Simulated assay, not measured.
Amino acid sequence: MEPAAPGPPGNSNLITLFLCGDVMTGRGIDQILPYSNPPAIHEPYMETATDYVRFAEKVNGPIPKPVDFAYIWGDALEELVLASPDVRIINLETSITTSEDWLPKGINYRMHPKNVPCITAAKIDCCVLANNHVLDWGYAGLAETLETLKKAGVSTAGAGDNLDQAEAAAIMEVAGKGRMLVFSLGSVTSGIPPDWAASENKAGVNLLEGFSEKTVRAIAESVREVKQPGDIVIASIHWGSNWGYYIPPEQRAFAHQLIEKAGVNIIHGHSSHHPKGIEIYQESPILYGCGDFLNDYEGIRGYEKYRGELTLMYFVSMEAGTGKVCHLEMVPLQIKHFRLNRASREDRQWLQETLTREGKKLGTQVKEGSHHTLILKWE
């Protein structure tokens, strides 16, 4: 299958972002990488992370072990080269640590720090961390995660040694085009334990106090403190349940208010295990749920109707200086053998129909693009 070629006609005044959903490189995926942690896990129905590898192989055949660091990205690497985005942002939903200080929460994700080249293999610029797995292996695990990514040259947002650090934006310069500010925010609706919230003297995540106007005002103040003319602001939010297409009215209202009152240009939503509907509001994209991007769920039954193995690369092109969205193109992929593979024609069509069905409620639809991509259209 020929590779896609996402992106609008050449325009030097555009900033193009790569966004995706949850990147879960712990547990089973960690076991196939060169420096895996001990496989023991603490789940009600599973005792070892290698069982996740076994389930995947039972369904789709052997996975070569150990794989190289770039393996998990599969066909996505070529798509990144073709799209050449200015900034690459992922929700990293795992702790990068050898800590044994696991928290009794049912599911605990961790990746060995020596496997961090699997993140840099895709030239990721920023990992947002305000999610419900970054503290799975305790505060020592969080500290090691932050230090490992810092040493690897990857920016982070959404977690820190205290509240100031957790609330701080990741700031990235785009040569000749301006700055990108990334704020990472988490909600208890995604399963983040309330006591994970960072405070003045306590490490943790940037946890939202609901979706109220008071919360919007606080975020607006944080944006004003660092935003300069021409900056583009992303609010990356871990919110909502894992399954289902329903978008609660309070989430939609909150997203609208962040755009109207807090100067946010893009809402990058995640937590859902499958892609959800997309909205364009006041020339700003709202990705309510980007779906899982990489996980070890192959062979795990349940919720098959949502096709959680199908995922999307989101390439968002915005006008430098104004943040106005000009183009949103998606590359459909399938998770198989713990790597990303180009989706079949039938699977692309299924995603197109699903996103159009859900987007109709939000004023958007999805059309087939050239070279096997999907393009968002809006009113």
Rank of each mutant, 00 (worst) to 15 (best):
M1I: 08
M1Y: 13
P3I: 13
P3V: 09
A5E: 12
P6C: 07
G10N: 13
L14K: 05
T16I: 11
L17R: 01
G21V: 03
D22T: 11
V23L: 10
T25H: 05
T25R: 01
G26P: 01
G28S: 05
D30L: 00
Q31L: 08
P34D: 10
S36E: 11
P39T: 05
A40F: 07
P44H: 12
Y45F: 14
Y52H: 09
E57T: 01
K58G: 08
P62N: 10
P62C: 06
K65L: 09
K65E: 11
Y71K: 00
Y71G: 01
W73T: 04
G74V: 03
D75S: 05
A76R: 15
A83F: 03
S84E: 14
S84Y: 09
D86C: 06
D86F: 05
R88Q: 08
N91H: 10
L92F: 12
T94H: 03
T94N: 09
S99Q: 11
E100P: 06
D101H: 09
L103T: 14
I107L: 15
N108W: 06
R110D: 03
T120H: 10
I124G: 12
C127H: 06
L129G: 12
L142P: 06
A152S: 12
A152E: 06
G153D: 13
V154Y: 03
T156E: 11
D161I: 07
D164V: 11
M172A: 03
A175M: 10
G178N: 12
R179G: 14
M180C: 10
F183P: 11
F183R: 07
V188Q: 15
T189M: 01
S190W: 03
S190M: 07
I192N: 04
P193W: 11
D195E: 13
S199D: 14
K202S: 08
N206M: 02
N206Y: 05
L208W: 01
G210Y: 02
F211Y: 14
E213V: 09
A218S: 12
I219S: 14
I219N: 12
S222Q: 15
V233T: 05
V233D: 03
V233N: 03
S236F: 06
H238M: 10
W239E: 07
N242E: 15
G244L: 08
I247L: 13
P248K: 15
E250C: 03
R252Q: 07
F254K: 07
A255W: 03
H256P: 00
Q257R: 15
E260P: 02
G263W: 02
N265E: 04
S271R: 11
H273F: 07
H273Q: 09
H274W: 11
P275V: 03
G277I: 02
I280L: 11
Y281L: 02
P285S: 10
Y297N: 09
E298Q: 14
R301M: 08
G302M: 06
K305N: 09
R307E: 10
G308Y: 04
T311D: 12
M313R: 08
F315E: 02
F315L: 04
S317G: 04
I335C: 10
K336E: 15
F338Q: 04
N341I: 14
R342P: 01
E346M: 09
R348V: 06
W350F: 13
T354Q: 06
T354H: 05
T354L: 01
T356P: 07
G363N: 05
Q365T: 15
V366S: 00
K367C: 13
E368K: 15
H371I: 03
L374M: 12
I375K: 05
K377F: 03
K377I: 00
